[in-house]
Protein backbone atom coordinates (compact mmCIF):
# COMPACT_ATOMS: atom_id res chain seq x y z
CA UNK A 1 0.00 0.00 0.00
CA UNK A 2 2.73 2.44 0.96
CA UNK A 3 4.32 1.68 -2.39
CA UNK A 4 1.10 2.46 -4.18
CA UNK A 5 0.76 5.77 -2.36
CA UNK A 6 4.37 6.59 -3.16
CA UNK A 7 3.76 5.86 -6.83
CA UNK A 8 0.72 8.12 -6.79
CA UNK A 9 2.77 10.92 -5.25
CA UNK A 10 5.55 10.40 -7.79
CA UNK A 11 3.00 10.54 -10.57
CA UNK A 12 1.26 13.59 -9.18
CA UNK A 13 4.45 15.65 -9.05
CA UNK A 14 5.59 14.53 -12.50
CA UNK A 15 2.08 15.08 -13.81
CA UNK A 16 1.92 18.63 -12.45
CA UNK A 17 5.01 19.50 -14.43
CA UNK A 18 3.63 17.83 -17.56
CA UNK A 19 0.37 19.69 -17.10
CA UNK A 20 2.07 23.08 -16.91
CA UNK A 21 3.99 22.44 -20.12
CA UNK A 22 0.89 20.96 -21.74
CA UNK A 23 -0.96 24.22 -21.11
CA UNK A 24 1.39 25.97 -23.51
CA UNK A 25 0.66 23.47 -26.26
CA UNK A 26 -3.04 23.42 -25.75
CA UNK A 27 -3.51 27.20 -25.58
CA UNK A 28 -1.67 27.73 -28.85
CA UNK A 29 -3.43 24.84 -30.48
CA UNK A 30 -6.81 26.03 -29.32
CA UNK A 31 -6.35 29.36 -30.97
CA UNK A 32 -4.18 28.68 -33.98
CA UNK A 33 -4.70 24.98 -34.62
CA UNK A 34 -0.92 24.74 -34.63
CA UNK A 35 1.40 22.29 -32.88
CA UNK A 36 4.01 24.64 -31.45
CA UNK A 37 6.98 22.28 -31.63
CA UNK A 38 9.24 24.91 -30.11
CA UNK A 39 7.36 25.04 -26.81
CA UNK A 40 9.42 22.29 -25.18
CA UNK A 41 12.52 24.30 -25.98
CA UNK A 42 11.03 27.43 -24.45
CA UNK A 43 10.63 25.41 -21.27
CA UNK A 44 14.25 24.33 -21.56
CA UNK A 45 15.31 27.98 -21.77
CA UNK A 46 13.21 28.64 -18.68
CA UNK A 47 15.03 25.88 -16.83
CA UNK A 48 18.52 27.00 -17.85
CA UNK A 49 17.89 30.69 -17.24
CA UNK A 50 16.57 29.97 -13.77
CA UNK A 51 19.51 27.66 -13.04
CA UNK A 52 21.96 30.41 -13.96
CA UNK A 53 20.06 33.10 -12.04
CA UNK A 54 19.66 30.98 -8.92
CA UNK A 55 23.37 30.30 -8.83
CA UNK A 56 24.28 33.94 -9.43
CA UNK A 57 21.83 35.32 -6.90
CA UNK A 58 22.72 32.70 -4.36
CA UNK A 59 26.40 33.45 -4.79
CA UNK A 60 25.57 37.14 -4.31
CA UNK A 61 24.37 36.23 -0.85
CA UNK A 62 20.61 36.68 -1.28
CA UNK A 63 18.39 34.50 0.86
CA UNK A 64 17.07 31.42 -0.88
CA UNK A 65 13.38 32.38 -1.21
CA UNK A 66 14.31 35.77 -2.67
CA UNK A 67 16.71 34.31 -5.21
CA UNK A 68 14.15 31.69 -6.21
CA UNK A 69 11.52 34.34 -6.71
CA UNK A 70 13.83 36.58 -8.70
CA UNK A 71 15.11 33.68 -10.78
CA UNK A 72 11.56 32.61 -11.54
CA UNK A 73 10.69 36.18 -12.49
CA UNK A 74 13.72 36.41 -14.75
CA UNK A 75 12.88 33.13 -16.45
CA UNK A 76 9.29 34.24 -16.98
CA UNK A 77 10.41 37.47 -18.60
CA UNK A 78 12.95 35.75 -20.87
CA UNK A 79 10.54 33.00 -21.93
CA UNK A 80 7.58 35.30 -22.41
CA UNK A 81 9.58 37.53 -24.71
CA UNK A 82 10.96 34.48 -26.48
CA UNK A 83 7.45 33.10 -27.01
CA UNK A 84 6.26 36.47 -28.21
CA UNK A 85 9.12 36.78 -30.72
CA UNK A 86 8.63 33.24 -32.00
CA UNK A 87 5.02 34.01 -32.79
CA UNK A 88 5.92 37.30 -34.39
CA UNK A 89 8.75 36.01 -36.53
CA UNK A 90 7.88 32.44 -37.38
CA UNK A 91 4.13 32.06 -37.15
CA UNK A 92 2.38 35.34 -37.84
CA UNK A 93 3.64 35.66 -41.43
CA UNK A 94 2.22 32.21 -42.09
CA UNK A 95 -1.26 32.90 -40.74
CA UNK A 96 -2.87 32.21 -44.12
CA UNK A 97 -0.36 29.67 -45.40
CA UNK A 98 -1.13 25.96 -45.79
CA UNK A 99 -1.69 24.21 -42.51
CA UNK A 100 1.62 22.35 -42.37
CA UNK A 101 3.85 25.31 -43.20
CA UNK A 102 4.11 26.57 -39.59
CA UNK A 103 5.10 23.05 -38.56
CA UNK A 104 8.35 23.44 -40.49
CA UNK A 105 9.12 26.88 -39.10
CA UNK A 106 8.34 25.49 -35.64
CA UNK A 107 10.94 22.78 -36.14
CA UNK A 108 13.39 25.34 -37.50
CA UNK A 109 12.83 27.59 -34.50
CA UNK A 110 13.20 24.63 -32.18
CA UNK A 111 16.63 23.84 -33.68
CA UNK A 112 17.60 27.52 -33.46
CA UNK A 113 16.67 27.72 -29.78
CA UNK A 114 18.48 24.49 -28.95
CA UNK A 115 21.75 25.48 -30.54
CA UNK A 116 21.59 29.03 -29.27
CA UNK A 117 21.27 27.49 -25.82
CA UNK A 118 24.23 25.24 -26.65
CA UNK A 119 26.27 28.36 -27.43
CA UNK A 120 25.29 30.03 -24.19
CA UNK A 121 25.34 27.14 -21.73
CA UNK A 122 27.45 24.60 -23.57
CA UNK A 123 26.39 21.07 -24.29
CA UNK A 124 27.31 19.59 -20.94
CA UNK A 125 24.68 18.68 -18.42
CA UNK A 126 24.23 21.54 -16.00
CA UNK A 127 23.95 20.68 -12.35
CA UNK A 128 22.18 22.95 -9.95
CA UNK A 129 23.87 22.52 -6.58
CA UNK A 130 21.39 21.79 -3.83
CA UNK A 131 20.91 25.19 -2.24
CA UNK A 132 17.92 23.94 -0.34
CA UNK A 133 17.41 20.53 1.17
CA UNK A 134 13.66 20.41 1.50
CA UNK A 135 12.62 18.57 4.64
CA UNK A 136 10.68 15.46 3.93
CA UNK A 137 7.60 14.17 5.66
CA UNK A 138 6.10 10.75 5.82
CA UNK A 139 2.59 10.28 4.54
CA UNK A 140 0.88 6.88 4.69
CA UNK A 141 4.27 5.21 4.61
CA UNK A 142 5.43 7.25 1.59
CA UNK A 143 8.01 10.01 1.39
CA UNK A 144 7.04 13.44 0.23
CA UNK A 145 9.15 16.56 0.60
CA UNK A 146 8.23 20.20 0.79
CA UNK A 147 9.49 20.91 -2.71
CA UNK A 148 7.12 18.33 -4.13
CA UNK A 149 4.25 19.79 -2.18
CA UNK A 150 5.21 23.26 -3.37
CA UNK A 151 5.33 22.11 -6.99
CA UNK A 152 1.87 20.57 -6.83
CA UNK A 153 0.34 23.57 -5.05
CA UNK A 154 1.98 26.15 -7.29
CA UNK A 155 0.96 24.22 -10.40
CA UNK A 156 -2.60 23.99 -9.12
CA UNK A 157 -2.68 27.73 -8.44
CA UNK A 158 -1.37 28.57 -11.90
CA UNK A 159 -3.82 26.26 -13.60
CA UNK A 160 -6.72 27.54 -11.52
CA UNK A 161 -5.69 31.12 -12.17
CA UNK A 162 -5.45 30.50 -15.89
CA UNK A 163 -8.86 28.90 -16.07
CA UNK A 164 -10.31 31.83 -14.12
CA UNK A 165 -8.53 34.27 -16.42
CA UNK A 166 -9.91 32.62 -19.54
CA UNK A 167 -13.43 32.50 -18.27
CA UNK A 168 -13.76 35.75 -16.39
CA UNK A 169 -11.46 38.38 -17.84
CA UNK A 170 -12.01 40.52 -20.90
CA UNK A 171 -8.88 39.13 -22.52
CA UNK A 172 -9.99 35.61 -21.72
CA UNK A 173 -13.27 36.20 -23.44
CA UNK A 174 -11.47 37.56 -26.47
CA UNK A 175 -9.29 34.43 -26.44
CA UNK A 176 -12.29 32.17 -26.41
CA UNK A 177 -13.93 34.16 -29.16
CA UNK A 178 -10.82 33.92 -31.32
CA UNK A 179 -10.65 30.21 -30.63
CA UNK A 180 -14.18 29.67 -31.85
CA UNK A 181 -13.97 31.79 -34.94
CA UNK A 182 -11.11 34.20 -35.58
CA UNK A 183 -12.80 35.93 -38.49
CA UNK A 184 -16.01 36.69 -36.62
CA UNK A 185 -14.09 37.62 -33.47
CA UNK A 186 -12.13 40.09 -35.54
CA UNK A 187 -15.35 41.54 -36.95
CA UNK A 188 -16.63 41.97 -33.41
CA UNK A 189 -13.68 44.19 -32.68
CA UNK A 190 -11.34 41.67 -31.12
CA UNK A 191 -7.72 42.40 -31.97
CA UNK A 192 -6.89 38.80 -32.88
CA UNK A 193 -3.19 39.55 -33.35
CA UNK A 194 -3.00 40.84 -29.80
CA UNK A 195 -4.96 37.86 -28.52
CA UNK A 196 -2.64 35.42 -30.23
CA UNK A 197 0.43 37.27 -28.96
CA UNK A 198 -1.03 37.16 -25.46
CA UNK A 199 -1.59 33.43 -25.78
CA UNK A 200 2.06 32.89 -26.61
CA UNK A 201 3.15 35.20 -23.81
CA UNK A 202 1.06 33.36 -21.25
CA UNK A 203 1.91 29.88 -22.47
CA UNK A 204 5.62 30.63 -22.49
CA UNK A 205 5.52 32.25 -19.07
CA UNK A 206 3.87 29.16 -17.65
CA UNK A 207 6.46 27.08 -19.48
CA UNK A 208 9.17 29.12 -17.72
CA UNK A 209 7.70 28.23 -14.34
CA UNK A 210 7.62 24.58 -15.36
CA UNK A 211 11.29 24.91 -16.34
CA UNK A 212 12.10 26.36 -12.93
CA UNK A 213 10.34 23.44 -11.28
CA UNK A 214 12.22 20.92 -13.37
CA UNK A 215 15.59 22.40 -12.53
CA UNK A 216 14.76 22.60 -8.82
CA UNK A 217 13.25 19.15 -8.63
CA UNK A 218 15.77 17.20 -10.67
CA UNK A 219 18.73 19.52 -10.30
CA UNK A 220 19.82 18.88 -13.87
CA UNK A 221 19.49 20.80 -17.11
CA UNK A 222 20.63 20.29 -20.68
CA UNK A 223 20.13 22.06 -23.98
CA UNK A 224 18.26 19.05 -25.37
CA UNK A 225 15.95 18.48 -22.41
CA UNK A 226 13.03 20.31 -24.00
CA UNK A 227 12.47 17.65 -26.63
CA UNK A 228 11.44 14.81 -24.35
CA UNK A 229 9.53 17.08 -21.98
CA UNK A 230 7.72 18.66 -24.91
CA UNK A 231 6.81 15.29 -26.38
CA UNK A 232 5.36 14.07 -23.10
CA UNK A 233 3.50 17.32 -22.51
CA UNK A 234 2.10 17.30 -26.01
CA UNK A 235 0.86 13.76 -25.48
CA UNK A 236 -0.76 14.92 -22.27
CA UNK A 237 -2.44 17.79 -24.05
CA UNK A 238 -3.91 15.46 -26.67
CA UNK A 239 -4.94 12.96 -24.03
CA UNK A 240 -6.98 15.62 -22.27
CA UNK A 241 -8.39 17.00 -25.48
CA UNK A 242 -6.10 19.46 -27.19
CA UNK A 243 -7.35 23.00 -27.20
CA UNK A 244 -9.04 22.57 -23.85
CA UNK A 245 -7.21 24.10 -20.89
CA UNK A 246 -8.89 21.92 -18.31
CA UNK A 247 -8.10 18.95 -20.51
CA UNK A 248 -4.39 19.76 -20.46
CA UNK A 249 -4.47 19.73 -16.67
CA UNK A 250 -6.28 16.40 -16.49
CA UNK A 251 -4.15 14.96 -19.29
CA UNK A 252 -0.91 16.01 -17.62
CA UNK A 253 -1.81 14.62 -14.22
CA UNK A 254 -3.16 11.46 -15.77
CA UNK A 255 -0.05 10.93 -17.87
CA UNK A 256 2.23 11.40 -14.87
CA UNK A 257 0.25 8.91 -12.82
CA UNK A 258 -0.06 6.42 -15.68
CA UNK A 259 3.70 6.50 -16.20
CA UNK A 260 4.42 5.92 -12.53
CA UNK A 261 1.91 3.14 -12.14
CA UNK A 262 2.94 1.55 -15.43
CA UNK A 263 6.59 1.45 -14.38
CA UNK A 264 5.56 0.11 -11.01
CA UNK A 265 2.97 -2.48 -11.90
CA UNK A 266 3.18 -3.40 -15.56
CA UNK A 267 5.40 -6.37 -14.78
CA UNK A 268 2.92 -7.95 -12.36
CA UNK A 269 -0.03 -7.17 -14.60
CA UNK A 270 1.54 -8.72 -17.68
CA UNK A 271 2.89 -11.73 -15.85
CA UNK A 272 6.50 -10.66 -16.35
CA UNK A 273 6.17 -10.29 -20.12
CA UNK A 274 6.54 -6.51 -20.13
CA UNK A 275 8.75 -4.53 -17.82
CA UNK A 276 9.44 -0.90 -17.12
CA UNK A 277 11.11 -0.80 -20.54
CA UNK A 278 7.62 -0.46 -21.97
CA UNK A 279 6.70 2.50 -19.81
CA UNK A 280 6.98 5.04 -22.58
CA UNK A 281 4.71 3.17 -24.95
CA UNK A 282 2.23 2.44 -22.21
CA UNK A 283 1.39 6.13 -22.17
CA UNK A 284 0.85 6.05 -25.93
CA UNK A 285 -1.29 2.93 -25.71
CA UNK A 286 -3.54 4.61 -23.19
CA UNK A 287 -3.67 7.62 -25.46
CA UNK A 288 -4.70 5.53 -28.46
CA UNK A 289 -7.30 3.73 -26.40
CA UNK A 290 -8.78 7.00 -25.17
CA UNK A 291 -8.86 8.41 -28.68
CA UNK A 292 -10.60 5.31 -29.98
CA UNK A 293 -13.36 5.74 -27.48
CA UNK A 294 -13.41 9.51 -27.52
CA UNK A 295 -11.75 10.78 -30.70
CA UNK A 296 -11.76 14.32 -29.34
CA UNK A 297 -9.79 13.49 -26.17
CA UNK A 298 -11.11 13.36 -22.64
CA UNK A 299 -12.46 16.89 -22.36
CA UNK A 300 -12.22 18.00 -25.97
CA UNK A 301 -15.28 19.21 -27.75
CA UNK A 302 -16.50 17.63 -30.88
CA UNK A 303 -16.01 20.21 -33.54
CA UNK A 304 -16.10 20.33 -37.28
CA UNK A 305 -13.02 19.92 -39.38
CA UNK A 306 -10.66 22.74 -39.04
CA UNK A 307 -8.81 21.93 -42.27
Amino acid sequence: MDIFVQQLINGLVLGSIYALVALGYTMVYGILGLINFAHGDVTMIGALVSATLIQLLHAAGLPVPVSLLLAGGGAVIVCASLGFSIERIAYRPLRNAPRLAPLITAIGVSILIQYSAALIWGKQYIALPAIITPPSIEFAGAQINHLQIAIVILAACIMGGLIWFIHHSRMGRAMRATEQNPAVASLMGVDTHAVIAMTFLLGSAIGAIAGLMVILYYGIGHYFMGFMLGLKAFTAAVLGGIGNVGGAVIGGLLLGIIESLAAGYIEQLSGGLFGSNYRDIFAFLVLILVLLLRPQGLLGQRSGDRA
Binding site: L94, P98, A101, I104, T105, I111, Y115, S116
Partner: peptide
Amino acid sequence: RMLLFGLALVLMMLLRPR
Protein backbone atom coordinates in the same frame (compact mmCIF):
# COMPACT_ATOMS: atom_id res chain seq x y z
CA ARG B 1 25.85 24.08 -38.87
CA MET B 2 22.72 23.35 -36.88
CA LEU B 3 21.92 27.04 -36.43
CA LEU B 4 22.16 27.64 -40.15
CA PHE B 5 20.03 24.59 -40.82
CA GLY B 6 17.32 25.82 -38.45
CA LEU B 7 17.50 29.26 -39.97
CA ALA B 8 17.25 27.83 -43.47
CA LEU B 9 14.10 25.90 -42.53
CA VAL B 10 12.47 29.04 -41.14
CA LEU B 11 13.50 31.29 -44.00
CA MET B 12 12.58 28.90 -46.77
CA MET B 13 9.15 28.41 -45.28
CA LEU B 14 8.59 32.12 -44.70
CA LEU B 15 9.59 32.96 -48.24
CA ARG B 16 7.75 30.09 -49.86
CA PRO B 17 4.91 29.00 -47.58
CA ARG B 18 3.50 26.61 -50.19
